[in-house]
Design a protein around this nucleic acid. Structure first.
Length: 424
RNA sequence: GUGGGUAUAGCUCAGCUGGUUAGAGCGCCAGGUUGUGGCCCUGGAGGUCGCCGGUUCGAAUCCGGUUACUCACCCCA
């Protein structure tokens, strides 16, 4: 449309915001390194088929939310709507499982889904996620919950809730499905339109329907517990056991179902009380069948993804993770002409020492330059006056207390030292 | 894809039932201080009133459409 509006559902992140992003990214690096994860950067787009197979044909994402296009070679490509399938693809393609297991990988970057934007939902959004390959240990399911909790806490976030559930595996899910269908079918006329539609395609998805009129039928729906095979049942018991032992606060939610087809056994979701309708700040689960489904050797895996914009929204709501704006170490004030050249010379020296030196490029009055120094909250102002320069000296003014002293320009190192010490 | 709300200066907003040069606060620039910031005072710049069309002698104001933002549904991080 216009040259001056960004595409719907996208955001520019500039001064005032980017500082928070940098801080969060730093926290992410700290937490992932403490847990022994290495970063994996995958392409922004992949072969469309990867997502069709990985996420599942019958999911909303694949059916209506993907940014899919043909390139000049007539290949169907898709802007990644999530991070797990690409990581699995890279894991298989790069034979990353050839060495010692488990393999711990994390990713960070933009994802794309064509949806109506709303609070905490954008067409281009950012996810931080991680995946562990090569072990069925329930302790790794627990780690996949602990790591994000560590991140949230280190950011200062409070008011979040962990919900967990198990959705079984290909061995035990069919019989549960069947019981669900048998339970719902006689009362099909009491269900909403979308539930009726999903009943035969994916009956488990009815469980988290929020339509008021469905609630009564749903409350009597059978639970998966009785259908779990011994392996799944034991696995989940151990997950719960570890969580209890580690003192993690969580809530069992038998109606928690994830939107992707690849999940098996444990699924979890973290919500924030700070957010509106889109209150999930992270979610994940185990997916023991996906690597094989995508052409790799059978490899169990578990992962988690954090919605970065949502986490940032929650943090801002709680006034956390604030970035204090740093100012220049020195603002060099000049009168134009030769004084400007001397100021520039000193500025470049200071910068070469790693100090933030700022100067006026608009040939403004001294008063205006002082105001600029003040506005940027510069620690020092340096005044390059004709008279002082004649004696090879400048005035160094401490902007905090107004104290001034003359400094010798022969000793730039000394000058840089003073400015650098009080700065920061 | 569906529904509600909103759209006036860089920002936050006022503009009553349509009436002449569209305002305020903050911010920005300049001056008050011939070489010195913050406070104060004075002045100044800055607006296609989202866009298109309609009603009217006359529309920022009423009507229709459209786009964007926003909130919610579906779904999801």
């Amino acid at each position: 449309m216009t040259l001056t509006t960004r595409p719907r559902g996208t955001n520019d992140i500039g001064p005032g915001q980017i500082e928070l992003w940098h801080k969060l990214e730093e926290k992410i690096r700290q937490v992932t390194s403490a847990y022994g994860y290495q970063e994996l950067r995958t392409p922004i787009f992949e072969h469309t088929e990867l997502f069709q197979r990985g996420i599942g044909e019958a999911t909303d994402i694949v059916e209506k939310e993907m940014y899919t296009f043909l390139d000049k070679g007539k290949r169907s490509l898709t802007l990644r709507p999530e991070g797990t399938a690409p990581v699995v693809r890279a894991f298989v393609e790069g034979k990353l499982g050839a060495g010692s297991l488990p393999v711990k990988l994390y990713y960070y970057g933009p994802m794309f889904r064509y949806e109506r934007p709303q609070a905490g939902r954008y067409r281009q959004f950012t996810q931080f996620g991680f995946e562990v390959f090569g072990s069925q240990d329930p302790l790794l399911d627990v780690e996949a919950i602990m790591l994000p909790l560590e991140l949230y806490k280190s950011c200062g976030l409070s008011g979040f809730e962990v919900q967990i559930n198990t959705i079984g595996c290909p061995a035990c899910r069919p019989s549960y499905r069947q019981e669900l269908v048998e339970y719902f079918e006689p009362q099909v006329d009491k269900l909403c339109a979308s539930c009726r539609d999903r009943l035969h395609r994916n009956p488990m998805r009815l469980l988290d329907c929020k339509v008021e009129s469905c609630q009564e039928v749903l409350s009597g729906a059978p639970q998966i517990t009785r259908h779990l095979c011994e392996e799944c049942s034991e696995h989940f018991a151990q997950v719960v056991d570890y969580l209890d032992a580690l003192g993690v606060d969580y809530k069992l939610n038998h109606r928690l179902v994830r939107g992707f087809d690849y999940y098996t056994k444990t699924v979890f979701e973290v919500t924030s009380s700070e957010l509106g309708a889109q209150n999930a700040i992270g979610a994940g689960g185990r997916y023991d069948g996906l690597v094989e489904e995508l052409g790799g050797k059978p490899t169990p895996a578990v992962g988690f993804a954090v919605g970065v914009e949502r986490l940032l929204l929650a943090l801002q709501g709680q006034d956390k993770l604030k970035a204090e704006a740093a100012g220049p170490h020195a603002y060099l004030i000049h009168f134009g002409g030769s004084t400007k050249r001397r100021a520039a010379e000193v500025a470049y020296f200071l910068r070469s020492q790693g100090l933030w030196a700022e100067l006026d490029y608009l040939d403004r009055s001294i008063k205006a330059q002082m105001k600029a120094a003040n506005r940027l909250s510069s620690k020092y102002a340096m005044i390059f006056g004709e008279e002082e320069l004649g004696r090879n000296r400048v005035i160094l003014r401490n902007m905090r207390d107004g104290h001034e002293q003359e400094m010798d320009l022969q000793e730039l190192e000394q000058l840089a030292k003073i400015i650098g010490e009080c700065g920061q």
